[in-house]
Structures are given as C-alpha cells and as structure tokens.
Amino acid sequence: MAHQGEPTKLRWGELEEDDGEDLDFLLPPRQVIGPDENGIKKVIEYKFDEDGNKVKITTTTRTRKLANARLSKRAVERRSWPKFGDAVREDVGSRLTMVSTEEILLERPKPLGAKTEEPKTSGDPLAQFQKGAVLMVCRTCGKKGDHWTSRCPYKDLAPPSEGFVDKPAASDAAAATAGATKGAYVPPGMRAGAERSSGSDMRRRNDENSVRVTNLSEDTREPDLLELFRPFGPVSRVYVAIDQKTGMSRGFGFVNFVNREDAQRAISKLNGYGYDNLILRVEWATPRAN
C-alpha cells in the first residue's frame, strides 16, 4: 500500500470490510493524458481488486475524427462537458458502450432483381440431390439420375420381385422348409427364381453406414441435416423423425453415407458439435434388434 505515510483520520478497522467502493478515495486520482495530435488518449485509473490490492489500469483509446462530420459550435462545446451522475465514476472494467461484433445489415425483404421467392421444396429434401445425381439410381427400373425408387413411374411395370425385402429374417428358415409344402405363403423374395442376393444386398445398403443424430433442435429439417453432413462425403439418405400428430420434429434423425470412412469421420467430428444451440449426439445407428 502506497499511502501508509499519509495522515488520515480514518482507521482501517472502522471501515466495513465488504464495502470496497468506500475505499476509493484512498486511491490516486484518475489521470487523463491526451488526446494528442494522433487522437490517442490515455486514461490511468486505480482500483482495488478482490483481494484488496491496488491495481493500476491504463486504458488507451484512439479517437478518430470523422471526415465529414459537421458539428455546430454548441455541439462542439457540449463535447467537452464534464461527466455527471453515474457517468463520473464510470468503472473502467464495465464496458457500457460496445461496438457490436456482429455486422448488421438492412435486410431486404426480397433480393434486388428477384421477382418472386423460389417455391419451397415441398417436403422433399432429396430433391436437392438432383444436381449431383450420380447417387440417384432407381432400383426398380435402373434408370440413373432421374427419380428415386419410390417415385418410379415404371413401378407397376417392373416385376414385383424386390418389393418386400424388409420381411423379417426369421421367416428365412421357415420359408425354406415351407417351400416344399404346398399352399403355404412364400414371400416373393424367397420364391424360387428370385434373386436373393440382390435382396439382402439392398437391405444392407439401407442400414449400413447409417449414422444416428440425436438432440436436434425442433427447427432442424432434412435439408439442414444434409447441409451439415454433406461435407464429409456423399450422403445417400437423410431422414428426420417428424411427429405425425403435431408435425414437429421429434429431435432425432438418420444420415446414411455411401462410404463407411466418411460416416466415421462425420461421427468423430460432429459428435458433441453445437448446432442451433444444442449439442448434437452423433453415433452409429445400431440396427433394430428383431
């Protein structure tokens, strides 16, 4: 402490301990240096920190003159008015006035030149794939880059061989034995002549490299998820669970990658990633136990 030698009538013991502000008069006065010709102003202030130690704070600010600012004489005079009220004891640490870190634009309701807003993609997030349509192969007619299997216009024309692949595997053995006994129902995939390999292949394609994303915000839709995961590699499917009744997102979804490595990378990168104020949980989707 620098001021022990100074004669002061106050005794330390008489001062309330927790009332640090009352001690402020013991500090050297505020010093303002400048502003010099470059507009650099130095303010030296002293205050007590939490432990009662004296801290010297030097704030250097540079004021720049606006080139075309025209001020009246009175306004210039007012500029040098002394501070009053709470502004006198303005704490150096408390930054009352800040410049926004964010650039705020006057947001136009519609961009210049645009006539009407693009029609919203009506609930078909996969329509976005249209551009890089290599992935899009119709399994019914084999056409590339035109439509998805579920939208195939030739669905009715194709043999229904691949329609019911998602039957439980439990019927596999049963079907094999039951195939001999006549009259029992045999799923089309299990019938003689059906390409069994292709069926199981497709099933794997649906489940493999599937990544489960949980703790999504309600506002997240499939296009958002696609945008989030696409940088890691080609994505074959995006799905966000929607509540049938309310139409709101249930907060989880699935993303299927074409390559397993991409999926692994996405998991390691995005698990714990903050997305729309929520922390995402990204993991391998475990196949449902049948």
């Binding site: 500029r79 009220g85 709470d86 502004a87 006035t97």
Partner: peptide, 16 residues
Amino acid sequence: NPTVWFADNGERLGTY
C-alpha cells in the same frame, strides 16, 4: 435514471 449519451460514439455523458 434517464441517461444522456453522445450520439456519435455512444459514450455516456451523464445520468439524471
């Protein structure tokens, strides 16, 4: 407490 600010840089001039 009504407050007055400098309108160019937002510095607080005083409070009433």
